[in-house]
Amino acid sequence: MPSETPQAEVGPTGCPHRSGPHSAKGSLEKGSPEDKEAKEPLWIRPDAPSRCTWQLGRPASESPHHHTAPAKSPKILPDILKKIGDTPMVRINKIGKKFGLKCELLAKCEFFNAGGSVKDRISLRMIEDAERDGTLKPGDTIIEPTSGNTGIGLALAAAVRGYRCIIVMPEKMSSEKVDVLRALGAEIVRTPTNARFDSPESHVGVAWRLKNEIPNSHILDQYRNASNPLAHYDTTADEILQQCDGKLDMLVASVGTGGTITGIARKLKEKCPGCRIIGVDPEGSILAEPEELNQTEQTTYEVEGIGYDFIPTVLDRTVVDKWFKSNDEEAFTFARMLIAQEGLLCGGSAGSTVAVAVKAAQELQEGQRCVVILPDSVRNYMTKFLSDRWMLQKGFLKEEDLTEKKPWWWHLRVQELGLSAPLTVLPTITCGHTIEILREKGFDQAPVVDEAGVILGMVTLGNMLSSLLAGKVQPSDQVGKVIYKQFKQIRLTDTLGRLSHILEMDHFALVV
């Protein structure tokens, strides 16, 4: 994948999101292997301009796509893939009243899908469409860049269908997702969380590099694949309309690839034109409109599966009536509230959605109805927002919020430890010299600072030695090549209790 991002070429006709291997024109390309080798690009942008032909009021008969309808489940399912879809609609009884809503608040519980998330729908649909058009064949390999849930859905379907599955996901995604993927037989590649989507090191860039190296491999490409919004247009939206008897006044959905909100909203605009569509985008993402909503100094966020630093091709923002931004604290607070007060075992993005819903639905009156999409299960986040310690460490809970008995030293300040200034190293000294210094002084790690004293990161003896043994660096290389740029900081005025929580999850903390 090139470091400079080429513009994806656009073909003359058809839909841009065809499933299957992508040609340089962004659509299915038939021909000899030699032709494909000559024409197939190194990668295709996940934010390529959409060429979708959908228009409100256009006859369904003019759609270029294969459409399906929700099917009634048999008493005995032939395999677990038949437990994807037909998820329950559940009334939220307490939270709406707590925040003064007059309307009825309903939750579409997508964590009841077989793999635990709304992404099971698009995973199965992308595979079925690729099999139907002859792209996927027995023994082929599926590769997908994902925040985890699409990966789980694909790995689940691949396990049943017999495909090899490789999932490329950023490091910030939970260990629970990784464990589930491994249990399903998927191979996992992790990428830096802070890598831009168009960087060769991003999950998108690495996935395309693997595709170019592995024979008979395919990126189904949830960011561009029409099967993504079509899955929701054909099934999720129809289920909502049936469950609500066609009567709903507002739908609120958090947005990642945009397939969920695009597919549902398009069908609702056709069948229930008075329904307002509300999009939820986390602070630090750029999906919301108008652009002024996205202006923030924050560039990272903890909530998973929603928000991006690019506009995915499948996201149709014209069908969203209003956007709201959400933050991590309210997302996790509301997710825990949904679990504790409503018994809905949902993930953090569901918290984002409901946090926005109780604001947006203030305009609705008694007798009206708001539906929220709860995308995934708490299963993926047992060591994250479900953990009091994690919430404390991230600053989303305060010590006084917890009532468990603490040891005698818990409320003492870090400054009472009488710490001395640490050994520091410059980023320009060599790895070999740094190892000598650390061994001589008896230290395992040291902060790396520039000549102005600005902290650049941390270097550890173990990481340097393993990097040297693996051949990633040489003793003569500058130590700046092996620094940890993500590390926890703590102030002298913070409590030892807070430091204790940090050290339970990290090997060190830097006192500043």
Rank of each mutant, 00 (worst) to 15 (best):
E37K: 14
P88Y: 03
T191I: 02
I44Q: 15
T146Y: 01
G246K: 04
H65E: 04
K36F: 15
Q243P: 03
P59C: 13
R276I: 08
P59D: 05
S61P: 14
S32Y: 11
P200Y: 12
L106I: 13
G31R: 12
G20K: 13
A158H: 01
S3H: 10
R18C: 06
P46M: 01
I76D: 07
D249E: 06
P12L: 04
T260W: 01
G259S: 02
G20Y: 03
F111P: 01
I240L: 03
P78A: 12
T53L: 09
S3Y: 10
H232F: 00
S227W: 05
I188P: 00
Y163E: 02
T87D: 00
K269V: 01
T13R: 03
G246S: 07
K172C: 00
P6V: 04
E213I: 08
G14T: 12
D47N: 09
W208K: 10
K98Y: 07
G263P: 02
Q222V: 04
G185K: 06
T191H: 03
A159T: 15
R58K: 15
P192R: 09
G115P: 08
P74V: 14
G259Q: 01
K75N: 11
E4D: 11
E9D: 15
W43R: 11
K269P: 01
H203L: 05
L81D: 07
I264Y: 02
I92W: 00
D133H: 11
R164A: 07
G185Y: 00
A231D: 08
T13Y: 05
L156S: 02
I80K: 01
R182F: 07
S174C: 00
I142V: 13
G139P: 08
A60Y: 12
T236R: 03
A231L: 03
N149F: 02
K94R: 15
A158Y: 01
D140F: 09
F99G: 14
D133R: 10
E104S: 11
D35Q: 10
R209Q: 15
K177S: 03
A226F: 03
N113T: 02
K94L: 12
D221L: 02
G151H: 00
V206Y: 04
S202T: 07
P46F: 02
R209L: 08
Y163N: 01
Y223L: 02
M173P: 02
C15E: 10
N228R: 01
K72N: 11
T260Q: 00
D47Q: 07
V206M: 14
